[in-house]
Design a protein around this nucleic acid. Sequence first.
DNA 1: CATTAAAAACCGACCGTTTGGTATGTAAAG
DNA 2: CTTTACATACCAAACGGTCGGTTTTTAATG
Lengths: 203, 203
Amino acid sequence: MNDSRDHILTTSLKLFLQKSFKEVTMKEIVEHTGLSKGAFYHYFTSKEQVFMEVINHFFREYLHEDYSQLPTESLAGFYQSILVNLDRRNEGAFFTSTGEPNDEEAFNINHYYLLFDAIRMLPAFKQKQLDHQQEEFASWTTVVTKARSNGEIRSAMTDEQIAKLFIYLSDGVGINYVMTEGLSKVRQELQSLWDGLYNTLKD
Amino acid sequence: MNDSRDHILTTSLKLFLQKSFKEVTMKEIVEHTGLSKGAFYHYFTSKEQVFMEVINHFFREYLHEDYSQLPTESLAGFYQSILVNLDRRNEGAFFTSTGEPNDEEAFNINHYYLLFDAIRMLPAFKQKQLDHQQEEFASWTTVVTKARSNGEIRSAMTDEQIAKLFIYLSDGVGINYVMTEGLSKVRQELQSLWDGLYNTLKD
DNA sequence: CATTAAAAACCGACCGTTTGGTATGTAAAG
DNA sequence: CTTTACATACCAAACGGTCGGTTTTTAATG
């Protein structure tokens, strides 16, 4: 039905993945869509609006792992599933929902621009981000608690500390590799560190 | 001597700490300095140039911990020193070199904009960043190696893995707190996690 | 199926403002 | 009297956005 509107949205997303909100111009959006300024403003009222919709439609679901769908029987299985999902999102595509392929490069430094822009411009998004972080923390903590009572792991640290260890480790690996090479090595790096940490807790 | 020039530099820094390069306008720089456009272009040839100098003069030394000055006798002492230095930089000021006080808020989300802008715009800075990361990794690894042979710690993980654990943990804590609250809690959070990790390695 | 009127989709010229940067001038310093 | 340090008016280009008009699609009617 609304073909052009979706086309504008996905095209804008591609641009916002390459530059910050301020750096992407209306001219670029219009030219990349192949449409005209009139067409754009027929569907959207402003550059801000298309940004907002881009964030809400694509970026949020792309960023946020769904922790409720993860297996929680063991800590090892839990983090292994996250790694597998990370793989899927990397090789897969950004636009799975629209069926469009991801011919662009993988996760990179610009994703942080986009994330930060969204946080600064959209209070609702910032709240979602906060909620997601809490959910992430709660999920990890639950799994760690269970793993400890199972006898899967043991440690002098609190469950919360261990949960944070895993979470911050993944964030740290991400931002480090984004600043240097690509995200290609992130998966194996994260696997190696999580495994090492896990084995330390297991002994 | 060159009073106005330095004034422009520090004023520009303050602005670049609040917005991205693109978002900071010449008008803002000129108005905040209290000088005129003519004055600005008397000392600098472009907005890019003042950005470049801002990065080289202030930001780099602010960001980069000097690992050669840290005590390496024990792992505990090593990371404790880093935490103390982190304190100093937080409460202290951004402009220690010029003696100006830091009345602005502490490290926040905009610092990442600045960091990313610098990486994208200044290849030399990116290289310095990379070198610094390598130096950081090398320092941690050395300290961990020594700590292990000392009998201070023991672990099934390699020295490199342990080093990365500490490094990525700090990066992860930083970016997480920047996105939510401030950097106020980062220090204690990092202390808690590093301590927990350390004790696990010690047992 | 053809006719037609209304609505939706789309175009590109145009608008006021802001952008980074320049040119010209002048007052002060050496 | 020359150089340095500023100020200000000005510029072309780019900015996000508007508007009047044209084409295309849709839906109702005979």
